[in-house]
């Protein structure tokens, strides 16, 4: 987040790379859970807006991740990829001199795939969804070893949206080669798709630059058309933050 939050034109760009643990389930492909490794590229852009007297910050998160996981016997293999864009408008409240709370609506779109290397007519699942949710964050600024630090915890919960899913036993041949649809666009809710994102970051301001380290946990799940899926991932992230001030012409 760019600090100070009220300063109009203040922007932050951060690119982070991460690696972490992955746990996947998709009962369309297998009833077994697969575990493995995920690599993640995360681009976070924030800017302060003029909305509500400058008390709203826009946050754009673009994530790309790739995963490789195995069944517990190592015989089954999954390869996965996901591209996501999430945009949040976060109102901020200074509840204490060093503590700021933020909350607001979030829009997300997700596109990806999960591929099982040994299945025949059900070799893969497409992931396509759009959702509206809510995001909340807490920012705490402190000094450690004479360096200014910003600690952030952010959690996002998806409240509802739309997602693609084949029907319980429907093949992709039927959907895409024959053009037969059957409840393939499903409404989601916190019950049908309980998805929660959590992010902890620590910004260390070192001279002119800012180093960011973080932990990100993504809980992506769905239970529609009697098909259960989950992608639980937890990654360690490291990146570099660029803060800059746009010079606005009046």
């Amino acid at each position: 987040m760019p600090l100070p939050l009220e300063k109009e034109g203040m922007r932050t760009h951060c690119t982070m790379l991460g690696i972490g643990h992955l746990n996947q389930l998709d009962t369309y492909l297998s009833p077994q859970e697969y575990t493995g490794t995920q690599v993640r590229l995360l681009q976070e852009n924030t800017k302060n807006t003029k909305l509500i007297h400058g008390r709203v910050t826009m946050q754009n998160l673009i994530q790309a991740n790739g995963g490789y996981s195995q069944s517990r016997t190592d015989k089954g293999k999954y390869m996965s990829g996901m591209l996501e864009w999430q945009m949040a408008l976060l109102h901020h409240w200074h509840v204490l001199p060093r503590l700021t709370l933020l909350a607001g609506p979030q829009l997300g779109t997700h596109l990806g795939f999960l591929y099982n290397t040994r299945n025949g007519n059900n070799p893969a699942q497409a992931r396509l969804s759009a959702d509206l949710g809510i995001s909340g964050a807490a920012l705490y600024r402190f000094v450690l070893w004479k360096k200014t630090m910003d600690l952030r915890y952010q959690a996002s919960l998806q409240l509802g949206g739309l997602m693609f899913s084949p029907q319980y036993g429907q093949s992709y041949y039927e959907i895409f080669s024959l053009g037969h649809s059957d409840h393939n666009i499903c409404f989601t809710s916190p019950f049908a798709a309980p998805n929660i994102d959590q992010l902890i970051t620590l910004d260390a301001h070192l001279g002119k630059g800012t180093l960011r380290i973080g932990l990100q946990g993504l809980v992506r799940q769905s239970h529609v058309n009697e098909i259960k899926t989950h992608d639980w991932s937890f990654a360690f992230l490291v990146g570099y933050v660029k803060n800059f001030q746009l010079v606005l012409s009046r």
């Binding site: 492909l29 016997t73 015989k75 040994r118 299945n119 036993g169 429907q170």
Partner: peptide, 19 residues
């Protein structure tokens, strides 16, 4: 029947008529 695949906990692959 259009066959699908699934698997057992020990990794054995199952194929069955699904559609």
């Amino acid at each position: 029947g259009l066959p699908f695949n699934s698997e057992l906990p020990n990794g054995w692959l199952v194929r069955f008529s699904a559609s």
